Amino acid sequence: MVSEKTAFRIVVALAGLVPVGAGLAGALGGAAVFAAAPDPFDLSLDSHARYLSGLLLGIGLAFWATLGRPEVHGARYRLLGAVVVLGGLARAFGLLAGEPDLAMRLALVMELVVTPAICLWQARLARNAP
């Protein structure tokens, strides 16, 4: 039987594939990675997309860096979780302009549902740690 801590590690490792993969793709590919980008050749938009993708990559790597002893990283989970939720709320505000593509809707679920659930689970692990 898999322990709760091992299950948590697996979930965080798999969930981390999203920000690491998307962040790396955007950092390397720029605005052209995002099909809905108005003009992937706009250098300012491209620069901004690469910067934000680098932040996303860093967030994913920071979550992965906790996998050794996730129960002791409560402050990191709270900070990273707050950053991700804030970004998700900003994305949700953008829904006022219209509905984005499926990838962006799935990102919203990761930001406003999955990440907070992982943070709550980490807090439970920390409370139950020996």
Rank of each mutant, 00 (worst) to 15 (best):
E4F: 10
A7G: 13
G16W: 03
P19L: 09
V20I: 15
G26P: 06
L28Q: 02
G30M: 10
F34C: 01
L45R: 09
D46A: 11
A49K: 00
R50K: 15
R50S: 10
L57N: 03
L61E: 03
A62G: 06
T66C: 14
L67A: 08
L67R: 08
L67P: 03
G68P: 05
E71G: 06
G74Q: 10
G74W: 00
Y77K: 06
R78A: 14
A82Q: 05
V85P: 00
V85M: 04
L86T: 13
G88E: 06
L89C: 08
A90D: 03
R91S: 00
F93Q: 09
E99T: 15
L102S: 11
L102E: 12
L102Q: 10
A103I: 14
A103K: 13
A103E: 12
R105G: 03
R105T: 04
A107Y: 10
L108K: 01
E111N: 05
E111G: 09
L112D: 07
V114A: 13
T115E: 00
T115I: 12
P116R: 06
A117C: 14
I118S: 03
L120F: 14
L120D: 02
A123L: 10
A123E: 09
R124Q: 11
L125C: 07
R127K: 14
A129P: 02
A129T: 06
P130M: 12
